[in-house]
Every structure is written in structure tokens, then in C-alpha cells.
Simulated assay, not measured.
Amino acid sequence: MGEIAQGLERALRTRPVPPDTETRLRFLLAAHQGSTRQVAAVLEVSQRTVQRWVTKKPGARRSPGPAQIQVIEEAVSARWQPRVRARRQTRAEAEGFVLHTRARFGFADAARPRTTRGCGTSPSACPGRPLENCSPRGTPARASSSRW
């Protein structure tokens, strides 16, 4: 998901999504009335796997892998505050929506002033003079006999 889409999703929520995987799994269980079978169907894993993830026994508890964590995060984001999201989305569609963004264009050294073709001054500093007459490295330009 791109940064703009994530910003829109954040704007439609009032509370942040649970930060850790254990809390996200508890949310999914609560959303499916405590049924590990339904949660397993949503996450496309076995029911026993979900039971291992949420058990309270210290020796039997297992944590999900990186791929499963991503699936859990997507499932929770899709189900997080559905009525609040729907209400805010209809309001934004009716009244309009303002999204503030920032852009970077990949300039590695934007703070240093740039010069053109070895000129010590920028072309805007000497309008009307061609670039060939710009002085190199800030020294005075030679006057050509035909022009000056």
C-alpha cells in the first residue's frame, strides 16, 4: 500500500490499530465471537495453528512467522472500526477532504547552490547576457569587441 493510501486510511480512523500481534489476534477472536475456526479461515491457516498462537500455556505458545504477521495485520486493518470508517468516508465524500502531503524529488544535495556551465553567477543574476558571457568562477567577464 502506498504512503498516500496509508494516510487516507489513518484519516478514516479515530484510534490506532493495535501495535503488537498478540493484541491483534485477540481483536480478531473478539470480532469472530471467540471462534478460532473462523479466525483460521480468515487467516488461511489451520485452527490448531491459531490455538497455538493464542494459548495461555507458557510451553505451548508459538508466535506467528513474518508472513503470518503480515496477513494478521491486513485482516485487522480491514476490520478495524468499520462503522467509524464508513461514517467518515461518507462525510468526506459529501463535504470534501483535504490531505496534506510532502514530496521529495531525490536531490542529493539541494542546499548547495547550483551554477550553470561554469558561471560564477546564476543566469537570473545577469538577464539579457548570454551564458557564454557569464564570468567563470566569479571573475569579471571579458567584453567582446562586437558586443561591448
Rank of each mutant, 00 (worst) to 15 (best):
G2T: 06
G2Y: 00
A5Y: 01
G7F: 01
L8H: 03
L8C: 12
E9V: 03
R10I: 01
T14H: 09
T14Y: 07
R15D: 08
R15W: 08
R15F: 08
V17G: 03
P18V: 06
P19G: 06
P19Q: 13
E22S: 12
T23K: 09
R24G: 13
L25D: 09
F27Y: 15
F27Q: 08
F27W: 10
L28R: 07
H32P: 05
H32E: 15
H32A: 15
G34F: 03
G34M: 03
S35D: 14
S35A: 11
T36D: 11
R37S: 15
Q38R: 12
V39S: 12
A40W: 02
E44Q: 15
V45S: 10
S46I: 06
Q47V: 06
Q47G: 11
T49V: 12
W53G: 04
V54P: 02
V54C: 11
T55I: 05
K57P: 00
P58Q: 12
G59K: 07
A60R: 06
R61Q: 15
R62Q: 14
S63F: 12
P64R: 08
G65L: 07
A67E: 11
A67G: 02
I69Q: 13
Q70G: 04
V71A: 14
V71S: 09
E73G: 12
E74M: 10
S77F: 04
A78Y: 10
Q81W: 04
P82C: 11
R83K: 12
R85S: 06
A86V: 00
R87K: 13
Q89T: 07
T90I: 04
R91T: 08
R91W: 07
R91F: 12
E93N: 08
G96T: 02
G96Y: 01
G96C: 00
F97T: 02
V98G: 04
T101P: 02
R104K: 05
F105D: 03
A108P: 00
A111G: 08
A111P: 00
A111D: 13
A111N: 02
P113K: 02
R114N: 04
R114E: 07
T116G: 01
R117N: 10
G118D: 03
G118T: 02
G118L: 01
P123D: 05
A125R: 08
A125K: 06
C126S: 10
G128T: 11
R129Q: 11
R129P: 00
P130V: 04
L131C: 07
L131Y: 00
L131R: 07
E132K: 01
N133M: 10
S135K: 05
S135D: 12
P136F: 10
R137S: 14
R137K: 14
G138F: 08
G138A: 14
T139G: 10
T139Y: 10
P140K: 13
A141H: 08
R142N: 10
A143R: 13
S146P: 00
W148A: 15
W148L: 15
